[in-house]
């Protein structure tokens, strides 16, 4: 890879549960997750609830909630392992080199601090700017995210902003130190469609201007198609397929990816063709089958799938638009 910014390798995260008969048990929520983001590109991480998308994002910045632990693997930002950093060292990375935007613009802003102070905080902290400088920069940032009358709104509080405006403020905060990587965890799920389109277009525009990479976490396959360069699909704590957006939608190789694409109703489908759902229920991480986690729901399952877990391997038909990998024992073309 020419210009890799972030490489996650074989990352495992475990959550200990109560011990039974003296035996410690734990639930593995991330199982050998590997992904790569190049400078300036947008990688989408898709999957259904509980698949480990958000956990992957949190792990990158050592934000795994207690009592979870990263038990194996590395998170390399330009070759430096973020998992090995001390608290003071990772703090210098958070909001500076790597920034994060969360789903809930309501709860991610501090209700008792002014917007201006919150946007200025990363600049004060990482750039050692004076109060006046930081305030000026905060006004510029709010203007950049198209908040009308930005300078005057610096002294407003979060409750005086609408949901869409709060998400713009979150983006302004994330961009404050011109980070190399922005992680956006379902940034528009709580917003209405017309506002969602505005926010994503803004995020995409600003990241490409700053040449920041974007890790976009979402469950919306339409959003992925519109904004992502490459896509990784997660299921039950594992990455099951990675490819360029064009390849993944045009030639999906993992049965789960195919199933997902077939179960989405499409706005451009006039015939109301019957949806093809994926049978069965979502996986229970505490009780995964021995082999491939998707095997109980897979339409192409065979004996090997129930016994052995497939690794993420190259699909033979590799193309010029980057590698195409998947974790499946089945034939490439069903």
């Amino acid at each position: 890879m020419s210009d890799t910014l972030l490489r996650v390798e074989d990352l495992c995260v475990d959550f200990p549960t109560e011990s039974r008969r003296g035996r410690r048990r734990s639930v593995r929520v991330l199982d050998h997750v590997s992904l790569e983001i190049e400078r300036g590109e947008t990688l989408a991480l898709v999957g259904e609830s509980g698949s480990g998308k958000s956990m992957t994002a949190l792990s990158i910045l050592q934000l795994i909630p207690e009592p979870g632990r990263a038990t194996a693997g590395e998170v390399l930002l330009e070759g430096r392992d973020l998992l090995a950093l001390r608290e003071s060292e990772i703090r210098a990375v958070r909001g500076n080199r790597v920034a994060m935007i969360f789903q809930e613009p309501m709860s991610s802003l501090n209700p008792v601090l002014t917007i201006g102070r919150q946007v200025a905080e990363p600049i004060r902290l990482h750039r050692k700017a004076s109060k006046a400088e930081a305030r000026e920069r905060a006004a510029e940032l709010l203007e950049a995210v198209s908040i009308p009358d930005a300078a005057r709104r610096l002294d407003d509080y979060p409750h005086q902003f609408s949901g869409g405006m709060r998400q713009r403020v979150m983006i302004a905060m994330a961009l404050a130190c011109e980070p190399d990587l922005i992680i956006a965890d379902e940034p528009t799920t709580a917003l209405d469609v017309t506002v969602q389109a505005q926010i994503l277009a803004l995020l995409k525009d600003l990241t490409s201007r700053l040449q920041s990479a974007l890790l976009l976490i979402t469950h919306d396959l339409g959003v992925v198609a519109r904004y992502a360069d490459r896509v990784s699909v997660m299921y039950a704590g594992r990455i099951v397929e990675s490819a360029s957006a064009g390849k993944l939608y045009g030639n999906p190789s993992h049965p789960y990816t195919r199933g997902l694409l077939q179960s989405v109703p499409r706005l451009d489908d006039s015939a109301q063709t019957r949806l093809v759902p994926i049978d069965g229920q979502p996986p229970d991480l505490a009780n995964l089958p021995t082999g491939c986690a998707f095997s109980p729901r897979c339409p192409q399952v065979h004996d090997k799938c129930r016994l052995e877990r497939p690794e993420l391997d190259s699909v033979v038909a590799a193309t010029d638009d980057g590698p195409h990998t998947r974790a499946c024992w089945g034939p490439e073309q069903p």
Partner: peptide, 13 residues
């Protein structure tokens, strides 16, 4: 509204 909804197809998008 229709314009704002993304379609799961990168070529179309």
């Amino acid at each position: 509204l229709l314009e704002a909804v993304p379609v799961p197809d990168p070529v179309l998008e």
